[in-house]
Amino acid sequence: MSETTTVAVLVGSLRADSLNRRLAEVLRDQAPEGVVLDIVDGLADLPFYNEDLDAGDAPAAAVALRERVAAADRVLAVTPEYNGTMPAVLNNAIDWLSRPYGAGAIVGKPFGVVGATPTPYGGKWAHADTVRSAGIAGATVVEDVLVSQSALEVDVLTDTEVLGRLTGAVQTLAAYQPATSAA
């Protein structure tokens, strides 16, 4: 019996037909054997993080997000870039996942980020901000799982070279093993 690796996927765009949503679905459908990509819906239902809301019973949407990510083995953000940074919905999700401080659902989870934008840089700034925020929140950022793809002159959903890089990133994230310290 083989072990399954579950990757919680956080999509940084709320639009139903967004390029990054469709990209997450393609990656889910082409996931390697033994890897399940779980696209986490409901990010639009999260209130903006506020410690007052989190002091007692957290909102149901936050509890659901935390449970899905806590149950996953890995986390992958698939996100566009908005005004040179990550979308607010993704930043807010990371904020909810980072709490309680030091013990949030994202703490210690191998984390990667990919995405596409119709800009020459393919979302590099948003992806760098996402990596920085997730790392500060306690995730274990996997350096080799960062793909920023321009969608200006290529169909990222069908181009075999682009899909090869993206599915390769998913494989790298799924196979990631943290370094063990020698005793």
Rank of each mutant, 00 (worst) to 15 (best):
W96V: 06
V75W: 13
D129F: 13
A61N: 12
A61L: 11
K124R: 13
D73M: 03
Y82Q: 07
A58P: 02
D144N: 15
A72K: 00
A139R: 01
L43R: 08
D144L: 06
I136A: 11
A61E: 10
T140Y: 11
V78W: 00
A137L: 05
D54M: 07
P87W: 02
P59N: 04
E25L: 05
L37P: 03
D41N: 12
L27G: 14
G34M: 05
A103Q: 14
V142Q: 01
P47I: 06
A88H: 15
S150E: 02
N92A: 10
S150M: 00
D95G: 08
D41Y: 02
W125V: 15
G164R: 04
T158R: 09
A72N: 06
A24H: 06
I94V: 15
L37K: 01
N92F: 15
N92W: 10
P118D: 10
L76N: 08
V36Y: 01
K109L: 11
V35A: 05
A72E: 02
T160S: 12
V63W: 07
A60R: 05
A88F: 15
Y121A: 12
L157I: 13
L76P: 09
L97Q: 01
P80D: 01
Q30L: 14
P32T: 04
G115E: 01
A134E: 06
V142F: 02
A64M: 14
P80W: 01
A62G: 08
A116M: 06
S148C: 12
E161M: 03
G135S: 15
E51H: 10
V114Y: 00
V69F: 06
M86S: 14
A72F: 03
E33Y: 07
E81S: 11
P87A: 10
W96M: 11
A139P: 00
F48E: 07
L43G: 05
M86F: 14
E81A: 04
F48C: 11
A77Q: 04
A70C: 08
A70L: 06
N50R: 03
R22D: 09
M86H: 02
L43D: 03
L163M: 01
D45W: 08
A77G: 10
L146Q: 13
L157M: 06
V40R: 03
L163V: 07
A93C: 11
V69I: 14
S148Y: 06
G164W: 05
I39M: 08
R132E: 05
L97I: 08
L53M: 12
R22N: 13
A126M: 07
F48L: 15
I39Y: 07
D29Y: 03
G164F: 07
V154E: 02
G122F: 00
A151N: 01
T130P: 06
K124M: 09
S148E: 07
A139V: 00
T160D: 14
N50T: 04
V113W: 11
P87E: 03
A71L: 04
D38W: 01
S133A: 15
G56M: 13
P47G: 15
V145M: 09
L37H: 07
A24Y: 00
P100S: 12
V40H: 06
D155M: 07
A31I: 12
A55D: 10
A24I: 03
D144C: 12
V113P: 00
E81H: 04
P118V: 11
S150D: 01
V113I: 14
